[in-house]
Nucleic acid binder design. Structure first.
Length: 561
RNA sequence: GUCUCCGUAGCUCAGCUGGAUAGAGCAACGCCCUUCUAAGGCGUGGGUCGUAGGUUCGAAUCCUACCGGGGACGCCA
């Protein structure tokens, strides 16, 4: 509809010899649908008062033969606005077109995009810090897929870092009388051992060194350690997977740093051969300074002076591998914003060395903070485990009211997902947010359950319709709903192009408010056939939108609630 | 210190490619179930958009400075 209006305005501007590409915007003035503010822009160039131009344009518009097809009213206002009330006919025409369009008429794209939104460490449980990246990342993945892109999600496990050496050290100590092959332990053991050794390392330099040695030897391919590594990996990864599954977060590849390590010999040779590497204080670095830099950009260190590889090497190796295996147009990282300078270094290094010349982007999400505005910690000081968070939200929800105690498990889980995800996705991803478990038990107001409830109560009203929408609109709530439905394309485009799921969340909420308003004010019983048919068409379209957009956010609709 | 993100209602947040009277949720108060789910709807109160300048016909939005907060700044990830 906006397109249509823009076009009509453009023609009108041209008739008056104004050379400008006008745009209508949604008006927040009561009773006005759209406004065009471009008379102000023309005022300077043509040396006329904006209001004069606005009047000329409205007068010209009114001369249109088929004016009534498009407008109910067009009026110039005060300093130079042009206020537009569209005709019911235009609304319905636009709605009919939209309903027949594939994917709500969004812009299609066909790129290959790799997404990085996992990053859990093997041997450490998933905690709240992993929640945002998973939820946001999966939503962006869904959005990009919906747009037509081919997406490749890689969990990118931290599977060969310092924590592995520490856990192996712990195991060797606890099972000193057994052969590595015969050692057996379970998840609970792992969950205790890692924090134990990790804190030991902090107070005991000796142990820390031993663990580091194990890590280094593991990275270099020590076969004994590899035996234990595999046992740890199997246990931990299946646990990690089960939680991701619960959250409906999925990855096409379960690669990790250890896979990146496989790229090192080839990559390092390439870097050396092409003279991209400099020795600095005994370490191998890639210089990533640029003239325009406002700060003194440190070089990207890819091999420590003791010969060990580190995080940057592994990320560069991963890019190397992705280029080789997937040849993507873009690689997106949904990672904590605190790493933004680090990513600048990596991206520059990849570009400068011609390892990868496509688009590299870091969508830094804000830190999850506690009420003290410091990164969130539980009372005991650790990070809250995702498993515990989910359990708590679920219990809270079940206890909310009697009916919930009898709800079937599948529906329950869908609602818990909706609560968690919507609470997270309604915030702009780039900003910090205050984590409050209370927030995740909220089911009234701007929440996931509210949207689900809206869908379900409207779904019950739906009966057959013949697919032919009339040109009538029956009342104000009806009109408001139709106008809101028409906004779906614009909102989707914006969300997908900017990779900001919260635009979808907020549109969903606004649509639900209006749909509930409609529900309250229009009873489907005892209506004339024509009206009933029309309502069925717009309500089923309403629910199609809600369902589709919820899907994009990773939220699914329960059978009942 | 430098860079960076941020400061909007009591609390948590939208709005930021400039438009008219700054929006939600929660919390508070009031009203609406003989009619499709009240997990709902309607209404009331609540604001120097951190401060001060600047650009502009017009600034929460753009620019500058300052105040306040988070974060990052070479061998951690």
């Amino acid at each position: 509809m906006n397109k249509k209006l823009n076009q009509i305005l453009k023609e009108t501007f041209q008739k008056l010899n104004y050379n400008y590409d006008p745009k209508v915007i949604k008006s927040n003035i009561e009773g006005i649908d759209f406004q065009c503010d471009d008379a102000f822009k023309l005022a300077k160039e043509y040396h006329k008062a904006p209001i004069i131009i606005a009047e000329e344009i409205t007068n010209k518009l009114k001369e249109l033969e088929n004016f009534e097809n498009y407008f109910k009213e067009v009026t110039p206002a005060k300093p130079g606005f042009i206020n537009i009330i569209v005709s019911d006919k235009l609304i319905n025409q636009s709605l009919k077109e939209l309903i027949n369009k594939d994917k709500f008429g969004i812009e299609k794209k066909e790129k290959t995009i790799v997404l990085d939104y996992g990053g859990p460490n093997v041997a450490k449980p998933l905690h709240v810090g992993h929640l945002r990246t998973a939820i946001i990342g999966q939503a962006i993945n869904n959005m990009l897929k919906f747009q037509g892109n081919k997406t490749i999600a890689d969990v990118h496990l931290g599977d060969i870092g310092a924590q592995m050496g520490q856990v192996i050290y712990g195991i060797i100590n606890d099972f000193s009388n057994k052969k590595y092959e015969d050692i057996e332990f379970d998840l609970d053991y792992l969950n205790v051992t890692y924090p134990k050794i990790s804190s030991l390392c902090k107070e005991n330099e000796e142990i820390k060194k031993k663990c580091a040695k194990i890590t280094k030897e593991l990275q270099e391919g020590n076969k004994d350690y590899k035996i234990l590594w595999e046992k740890i990996y199997k246990l931990s990864v299946s646990d990690i997977k089960s939680i991701y599954d619960y959250l409906d977060v999925h990855f096409d590849y379960w690669l990790g740093e250890s896979d990146a390590y496989k790229q090192f010999p080839e990559m390092m040779k390439y870097l050396e051969d092409n003279n991209y590497i400099k020795i600095d204080d005994g370490a191998k670095v890639i210089d990533v300074k640029e003239e325009k830099d406002k700060i003194d950009m440190p070089p990207c260190i890819i091999q420590k002076s003791d010969g060990a590889y580190l995080y940057a090497t592994s990320d560069l190796g991963t890019i190397w591998q992705r280029k080789k295996d997937f040849n993507p147009d873009e690689i997106l990282y949904i990672v904590d914003a605190r790493q933004s300078m680090y990513f600048t270094q990596i991206f520059r290094a990849a570009k400068k060395t011609n390892i990868y010349n496509g688009i590299l982007a870091h969508y830094g999400y804000g830190t999850v903070n506690g009420k003290d505005n410091k990164p969130f910690k539980t009372r005991s000081g650790g990070a809250l485990k995702l498993k515990d968070l989910i359990k708590e939200v679920k219990t809270e929800f079940i206890n909310l009211r009697e009916e919930n105690k009898h709800m079937d498990e599948e529906d329950l889980d869908k609602i818990v997902n909706a609560i968690l995800k919507f609470a997270d996705l309604q915030n702009d991803l780039t900003r910090n947010y205050i984590f409050d478990i209370q927030k995740f038990s909220e089911v009234n107001g701007k929440t996931g359950p509210y949207i689900l409830y809206t869908y379900l109560r409207i779904n019950k009203l739906l009966t057959q319709n013949d697919g032919h929408l009339s040109d009538n609109i029956y009342n104000e709530t009806d009109r408001a709903l139709r106008l809101k439905l028409l906004e779906v394309t614009e909102n989707l485009n914006m969300a997908i192009n900017e990779r900001k799921p919260h635009y979808i969340a907020s549109y969903l909420y606004e649509l639900s408010v209006i749909a509930n308003n409609f529900y309250q004010n229009n009873h489907m019983t005892d209506l004339q056939d024509q009206i009933k048919n029309d309502y069925n068409i717009i309500l089923s379209f309403n629910n199609l939108i809600i369902k589709t957009l919820l899907d994009l956010l990773g939220i699914h609709i329960p059978k009942s609630m």
